[in-house]
Nucleic acid binder design. Structure first.
Length: 369
DNA sequence: ATTGCCGGGCT
DNA sequence: AGCCCGGCAAT
């Protein structure tokens, strides 16, 4: 911003040009500012276990029933193929997200990245950290007993990414009730707990570690790709969050994430999509280049523009890059107002900086469509 | 009103 | 070929 404004400017049109630059830069930087603050907010909310628990305590009977249904579904999916479910997510790169897409309304911020990475970094140890947490919260089980339990009949917690093993059914129920369901002595949680653990006879049935530390991005990912994200909210969650959020609680979390997902991913998706009209790629790709490392070569418009920009001065570069339209979504036909031609970029007053074609009122060569 | 640029004229 | 502009369509 300041660098742009302090660029030496030719001739007489400083006032207007500065105004132009300032406007453009505001577009370029405000979202980032929101983005970081949003991320902080979400991070704060999500790392706040107490609020989640409060929600759990106040669940209505209907929601409990729904929880049971969903728990059964989750359990089914988990017990069927816990290993099969994890590979697809790890291969997914952020830039390949194609969930939710345009179905989600724009939220005006894109805090997803910061949130995701922060949470992943914080909880990256995954099962280890989870175990540590469990041990910390529930020190009733000695380590020796645990290791011993691997070789004989044990009860394995099926809660996503938990994998807690206990030798007693009661202990397992208590573990689930306290840690996952988040209620202390609720009577009706008796049946519900049965959904969340299973009896195992050997150590090769550890369902928890079989899906180790799914990063939150991938979990959001996989569940987001299904239109019924409600079905798999707890499933494949980060341990830290899954421990504290029961099936009904994540809905707000999902909302938060999907909103940010939309912001974060839809531009990438648009840019990467093979065969997509190149007119779609200008605006999003320019933003993407600043936030992620998607190659510019995927977008014809951007690559041409960038190639030209490479040859030009820094001030010119800041002009053109930051001049990308602030629109988040992509219309199939790029509106005329969205195209940044020499006339628009430099203004009539700096016509001598236009490309030749523009000066001649021909089709712009510098910023071709 | 502004913008992008086709078509055409002038040198 | 280089340059310029009237005029039109799109916004």
């Amino acid at each position: 911003m300041t660098s742009v404004l302090s660029q030496p400017r030719p001739r007489t049109t400083q006032m207007q040009t500065q105004g132009h630059d300032e406007r453009v830069c505001m577009h370029g930087e405000d979202p980032d500012a929101d983005f970081s603050s949003d991320a902080k907010i979400h991070q704060t909310n999500l790392s706040f276990p107490h609020s989640s628990r409060l929600d759990l305590h106040h669940r209505s009977p209907e929601s409990v029933e729904m929880d049971e249904i969903m728990a059964a579904m989750v359990l089914t999916s988990l017990s069927c193929s816990p290993v099969v479910q994890s590979p697809p997510q790890k291969d997914l790169l952020p830039g390949e997200m194609e969930c939710c897409g345009g179905d989600l309304s724009d939220s005006g911020s894109s805090g997803y990245w910061s949130w995701d990475r922060g949470s992943v970094r914080d909880r990256s140890p995954g099962p280890l950290a989870d175990e540590g947490l469990l041990m910390e919260l529930e020190p009733a089980e000695p380590e020796g007993q645990r290791s011993k339990s691997l070789s004989r009949g044990t009860y394995s917690c099926l809660w996503p990414a938990c994998g807690k093993l206990l030798t007693s059914r009661v202990g397992m129920k208590r573990h689930i009730r306290f840690l996952h369901l988040g209620r202390g002595g609720s009577e009706q949680s008796h049946r519900e707990e049965d959904f969340y653990y299973t009896e195992v006879s050997s150590d090769d049935e550890e369902t928890g570690p079989s899906s180790p530390t799914p990063s939150f991005s991938s979990s959001v990912w996989s569940s987001c790709s299904s239109t019924q994200s409600q079905n798999t909210p707890g499933h494949q969650e980060t341990p830290g969050s899954s421990n504290l959020l029961s099936q009904s609680a994540p809905s707000s979390v999902w909302q938060i994430h999907t909103e940010h997902l939309y912001q974060s991913w839809s531009p990438v998706q648009v840019t990467v999509a093979p065969g997509s009209p190149s007119i779609c790629s200008w605006a999003p790709a320019a933003e993407v280049q600043q936030k992620s490392q998607v190659p510019a070569s995927r977008s014809r418009s951007v690559s041409v523009g960038e190639q030209w920009l490479e040859k030009n001065s820094a001030s010119t570069r800041s002009h053109a890059v930051s001049a990308s339209p602030s629109r988040g979504h992509c219309s199939f036909r790029k509106g005329r107002g969205e195209a940044k031609k020499c006339r628009k970029v430099y203004g009539v007053e700096r016509r001598d900086q236009w490309c030749t074609a523009c000066r001649w009122k021909k089709a712009c060569q510098r910023f071709p469509d």
